[in-house]
């Protein structure tokens, strides 16, 4: 009986282990090892850290790093705080909060590729809605080709995504709903306003969940791809190139060793971000004992 149970458990686990090994573990081992190789269509030759040295020397990789850093910065400083503010407001049960919760979540359920075309139209210099809107509100002098000029491309792309905070809003709302009511009692008796309660009581209690959202948004920012690939392709002149787009470019020109070296940077930055955020937000520590 005991022996056959062990066998059953093993058989039960086997498909998952096989899939995990084939499509996650082995690919990761591959990029780790081959990032130290010159690898293209003709073969594989060890070249030490040449891929890495080349990258750190290349101007386009520097742009990719810089743009990814700006993107991550926007995620941390704007994206998550907006989600928290919105979650606090909707948690106050303002009239219609359920409808707004659904509405705000909808963009999260739409694919980045569809949104890429939405914004390709929205920003279009000739017929786009943004330029139309600027004209209508008397800011016609600001009209420009938002996605395809050097100074605005990256920020236009960030704006296609930064207001889509629905997922984090819902996660934070779930956390707010789980805060026991009696914690607010003293504050209510003392006459603290909604805003004071949110700022001094709710916000500190959201530390864990905000940390979790930070981890999710930073790792998502590191792999953001479709919206760039389907619009600017990283241009003009690398103005909107990020790490994922740089990986894809190296892959496309059969410079696989380099693609994997960039991939290793993405993995590494992800791990550093997770460790750092867990530390800063002291994730896992309890509030009460």
């Amino acid at each position: 009986m005991q022996k056959s149970l062990g066998l059953s458990i093993f058989v039960s686990l086997l498909p998952a282990i096989a899939l995990f090994a084939t499509f996650l573990a082995f690919p990761f081992a591959t990029i780790l090892v081959t990032s130290f190789f010159e690898w293209n269509a003709s073969g594989l030759t060890f070249n030490g850290g040449a891929n890495y040295l080349e990258l750190w020397d290349s101007r386009s990789f520097k742009s990719a790093l810089q743009n990814t850093a700006i993107w991550v910065g926007a995620a941390v400083l704007i994206h998550v705080p907006l989600a928290v503010v919105l979650a606090m407001i909707l948690s106050r049960r303002v009239k219609g909060w359920k409808v707004f919760r659904t509405l705000f979540f909808l963009p999260n359920i739409v694919s980045y590729s569809a949104l890429a075309i939405v914004f390709l139209g929205f920003y279009n210099a000739r017929y786009g809605a943004l330029n139309m809107l600027l004209e209508d509100i008397g800011l016609g002098h600001l009209q420009q080709d938002w996605l395809f000029q050097y100074n605005t491309a990256l920020y236009a792309l960030i704006a296609t995504w930064i207001f889509h905070v629905g997922l984090y809003m819902i996660i934070v709302m779930a956390e707010i709903a789980s805060i026991p009511e009696d914690i607010y009692e003293a504050a209510v008796i003392e006459g603290a306003s909604d805003v004071q309660q949110d700022w001094f009581i709710t916000l500190p209690l959201l530390r864990n969940v905000i940390g979790t959202c930070m981890i999710l948004t930073v790792t998502q920012s590191l792999i953001y791809f479709e919206g760039i690939f389907l619009t600017t392709k990283g241009g003009p002149a690398n103005a909107s190139l990020n790490m994922s787009m740089a990986t894809y470019r190296a892959f496309e020109r059969f410079d696989w060793g380099e693609a994997n070296a960039i991939g290793m940077h993405i993995v590494l930055f992800g791990v550093i971000a997770i460790v750092l955020i867990r530390h800063i937000f002291r994730i896992g520590e309890r509030y009460f004992d």
Partner: peptide, 13 residues
């Protein structure tokens, strides 16, 4: 595996 950045894996996949 949950935190593996998929775009890093395009060559091996």
């Amino acid at each position: 595996g949950l935190v593996m950045p998929f775009t890093a894996l395009i060559v091996p996949e």
